[in-house]
Design a binder for these strands. Structure first.
Lengths: 171, 171
DNA sequence: AGACAATAGATGTCGTCAACAACAATATAG
DNA sequence: CTATATTGTTGTTGACGACATCTATTGTCT
């Protein structure tokens, strides 16, 4: 079951939309509600950073209706020659059953196809369609815009530091 | 709609369980499947780090069946005097409707209660029950174990650096 | 060569998530 | 006093995450 720290949402939060102060904001007139020990948990801040970044990504790619998960799958398919579903699922760390359903939706949108493997009749060689390639090209450009915005906000050095620190992250 | 980068899972991955190499592993004998441009996306690595940390948290607190979301809610309720649902939802950045259902489940477990507010008949003052306080105490101890393990893995300096970098994260 | 094990992909199912909508009761603003 | 906003709740939807089970096919072992 997916679990997550709950954390303050970013763009689109109710507090941002309402003109009046929220109850929480009013409360801080006397005794601000606090996060307690959550302040010391890396997981909590990882989650909220992830939410913030994902929301910016989703907003940025909204015009082509591609979310982070779809982008990951398109990227792996587009970067490898006819990978199998097992390979894609393994690489991205998702259940094969889940990938089946994602591919179903991508196929319905005409973005990817399942080609019979020439060497293993159980397998498919996944490919982007011409339409999928075109859309993926646009997705990459938009994703680059999103990442540039992150870099702008964090600073190039900070962004690089985070990328490196998280890249080597292992438990 | 919840979105996420897909990324390699950590503990419990199929590759870890099977004795034989996976298709992806075999493939690397000739042409390793790659992540493509995902390698350069902060969001991708944020997601996989978050997944790794959450899974360790969930394993660590499995004995008391408390996930990150429940822990967050219990922490805010336990750290504030009779907060309202609106306050808790605002602070944690979740929809009020969602908190209602979470509180329903926590109440069913006998961990929290909704006291009528003395000042606002629309509101509840949320509280941990004695059982909830006891369980929350145990949860804090287990969460500290989880965090200590993170610190052990990352190194205290690295952990602190990440915590600070993510703490100030804003989009 | 044949039996058995493993793999690839698919479908079913369940509880929960995330989000949106709509509503009633109550508080606040004017 | 009336209009607007807030609090909490219920309903609903598509997707997620996970597990189970199945068929077709390939690989391994004897």
């Amino acid at each position: 079951m997916a679990e997550r720290w709950l954390s303050p949402r970013t763009a689109g939060n109710r507090a941002a939309s309402g003109a009046r102060r929220t109850t929480a904001a009013r409360r801080s007139d006397h005794e601000p509600a606090g996060l307690g020990v959550l302040e010391n948990h890396l997981g909590y801040f990882l989650r909220r950073a992830q939410i913030a970044v994902f929301q910016d990504f989703i907003r940025t790619l909204a015009e082509i209706d591609i979310g982070p998960a779809q982008y990951s799958v398109l990227t792996v398919i587009g970067s490898n020659r006819g990978p199998s579903q097992a390979e894609v699922a393994d690489l991205l760390g998702i259940e094969r059953a889940r990938l089946v359903r994602m591919l179903d939706r991508l196929e319905r949108r005409g973005l990817t196809i399942r080609q019979p493997s020439s060497t293993d009749r159980r397998s498919h060689a996944l490919q982007l369609t011409p339409h999928g390639q075109k859309l993926f090209k646009r997705a990459k450009a938009l994703a680059a815009t999103h990442e540039a915005r992150l870099i702008g906000r964090l600073g190039a050095a900070h962004h690089k530091l985070l990328l490196k620190a998280l890249h080597d992250f292992e438990l």
